[in-house]
């Protein structure tokens, strides 16, 4: 991480996060984030080779549910909140052809 954090590519990160930023914002965030990351450099000085990561504040496992229906909301409830609707049935978006099969990428 050392030198890396000094050249955060904010434009690339903003694109990943789908945020439009103007030039002023880019330079401001670049400064802020570099400062924060410089501070976080302290983590690289800790020997963590034998430490396992903690992802949760609670240590429970196997929280699952039985395969029983709980009911759905009505279509009108869904579409009432939707910004754009098609035929009172579908949520409308500009045309998009998924890169790949119609399924997860």
């Amino acid at each position: 991480m050392n030198e890396k954090s000094q050249d955060v590519d904010i434009r690339h990160i903003a694109n990943l996060a789908r945020l439009n930023l103007n030039d002023g914002e880019i330079s401001r965030y670049e400064t802020d984030i570099n400062a924060i990351l410089s501070y976080a450099e302290q983590l690289s000085k800790v020997d963590l080779s034998d430490v396992s990561p903690t992802a949760h504040a609670a240590s429970i496992t196997n929280v699952i549910r039985s395969d029983e229906e709980r009911g759905s909301m009505t279509r009108s409830e869904l579409l009432d909140n939707a910004p754009d609707v098609l035929d009172d049935e579908l949520i409308k978006v500009p045309v998009v052809i998924r890169h790949g099969s119609e399924g997860p990428a």
């Binding site: 991480m1 890396k4 983590l43 963590l48 990561p53 992802a55």
Partner: peptide
């Protein structure tokens, strides 16, 4: 690895 994983390990400590 440099950030998120390390932060999680610090969380363990």
């Amino acid at each position: 690895d440099a950030y998120y994983l390390r932060a999680q390990k610090i969380r363990t400590l």
